[in-house]
Structure formats: C-alpha cells, structure tokens
Amino acid sequence: MADTATTNGAVPVPLTTRKDWTSDQEVRWCPGCGDYSILAAVQMLLPDLGVRRENTVFVSGIGCAARFPYYMSTYGMHSIHGRAPAIATGLASSRPDLDVWVITGDGDSLSIGGNHLIHALRRNINITILLFNNQIYGLTKGQYSPTSEVAKVTKSTPFGSLEQPFNPLSLALGAEATFVARTHDMDRKHMMETFRRAHEHRGASFVEIYQNCNVFNDAAFEGITGKDHRAEMLIPLEHGQPIRFGADGEHGVVLRSDGTVHIVDVAEVGEDQILVHDAHRDNPGLAFQLSRLSRGPFEPTPIGVFRDVERPEYGTQMSDQMAAAEARRGGKGDLAALLRSGSTWTVGAG
C-alpha cells in the first residue's frame, strides 16, 4: 500500500488491491459455498471505494456468514447470535467516522435477531447490512429458516415446515428502511454495484443476497439465478428506467389502478405503459409492491435497488444534539459545576 490516491484533497487514501483487504486467515466455508463469491465481491469493491482499512469495521452475529469478518484485514467483531445490528448501532452512532458493515444471515437477522434488524432500519443507523439469504440453517446443519418455503422438509421438519416465510425486502420496507436492495451470489458485477450503492447511502442500507448453500439447500435459487435462466427470471430494477426483462426486453412490469404491479408482455400493453422505476419515491408503497411481485425464487424476481431515499441518519442527529447542548450551555460540561447543580449547603469548620 505504498502508493496513494487523493480524495477530497487533504488526506490521501492509500491505493489498495483486493489482497490488502484479505486477512491471513484460511477461509473455512464449505467448498462451493456462495459465501466465497460474496467475500470476493466485497474484497474487490473496497479498493474502489476510497476508504481506509483502519476506518472499516465488519460486525457479524452467528452463522456461516458470520465468519466473514475473520477474512477481512479490517477491524472486525464476530459477536453473538442476532445481535450484530445492536452492537453496530453503538459503534456507528458513537463513531461516525467509521464505515460499519453488518454481515448476517436469514436465521441470524430474521429469526433470533429480528428485533434488532427492524429497529436499526427504523432508526436509520449508518450501517450497511448484507443479509446472506440461503433459506436454510447451515451452521447447525440443515434446519428450516424463517425464509424457507412452506412445506420444506428438513431435519427439524420431516413432515414439512408449516410456516409462512418472511419476505426480507417487504419486512425491511415495513420497518422504514431507507435503502433496500437485492442481489445474488452468481453475479459478481451486480453484487459489487449493489454494495457500492448501499455503501454510498447515508443511513441504514439493507441488501438481501440470494446465496446458495450447496450442502443443505443446494440450487434453491438456481431457477432464477442460473446463467440460462437469468434473462427470463430476473427483473433488473434501474432507477429512471422502464422495468423490463427477457432476452429482448419483451416482458415488463405495469402498475394497475388498484396499486398492484403485474408482469405483462410489452408488445401487448405498449412500451409507454411500462412502469418506470423510481427508487427515490418517498412513499414506500410501490417498492413494497415490487418486493412482492415474486412469491419466491421460482418466478420472475426483481433485483437491484428497490428503495433509496434520504432521511436523517441517527448518529449524525445524536452528534447534532450534543453540539446543540454544548452551544446552549456555552461550552463543554464542567464537572465541578455539575456536582454543585442541586441545592447545596455548606458546613463550616468547627
């Protein structure tokens, strides 16, 4: 890291490569795991972001994905199950100078840590949350997860799961998230672009990554993310562009007068009827509709940035309140004055 690139003039950020962001720890995910490609995408993206290793922190909970921080040569914490958003909240709100990433899985953040996830989103903490969704519990060896499909047969559900799964994007949008996106582990370029956008966003960014667990839930997303299926099954969302997909863009999405969205053949309705994606819409209703366009990874499914709106970020507001308190009191707190701020009396000598 000898060379430097100048950003913002003052303090040059060292030029780095993927290698600089890679720790000396041997990666121990199962061979063929989707986590490898996500790790690679992050390690390849970071040199491009103009950020410093020492100001970057990865915080995780428990699960396969949660081993991620060990493989980054940044600061990092592998914490406890489900609590990463809470820990990251304390870190990011008290250290606004840091880039804080939260690495989590569907069990970690949608089951045991569901409460922390929704509140971090609601508060708009300045963190970037990457949720590795493989629709299964991997580290505990194959139980159904809160995103597993109904009737899924697993070790803990030999007669099929009875539970309605969460739609992670619908959940995030319902939790007042300001940045919501989806990508998948088979497309490094799309991941990098999505992560870049998530990182740029001030406040809480939520990215769901469809990730293959080749041991316990192999090919769960193959039907939509496989090379041969993508054109027909993935619907790229691009801000300001009509929502179209298919090898020749022959399919599209329309908004009906009842507020629902539907897939149509462009030729049948006409190009001007196709919904133009607006990620910056203040009202999350349309993003919510898009999040529910697909019932699962067996139907055409939107990917990309669903929502990207501005709202004051928690840590900044916290700092602003502190600065305002200081201004109002005419400076930093005086301890001696605090200790005498109640009714006091003096007892004389003798």
Partner: peptide, 26 residues
C-alpha cells in the same frame, strides 16, 4: 449531552448492552 454523553434507549435490554459493547469496541 454537553458532557459528550450519548444515551441510547434501545429496543430491548439485549440491544442496550449490545450497543454499549459496540461503543466500547469503538
């Protein structure tokens, strides 16, 4: 707050100590 004190009323007891520990790490 003018003493540089940050108070965070968390969503639950677990998040309260989690955030405090995150701040300690920082």
């Amino acid at each position: 707050k003018h003493f540089g004190v940050r108070t965070f009323q968390a969503e639950d007891e677990i998040a309260g100590i989690g955030a405090a520990l995150g701040a300690s790490f920082g």
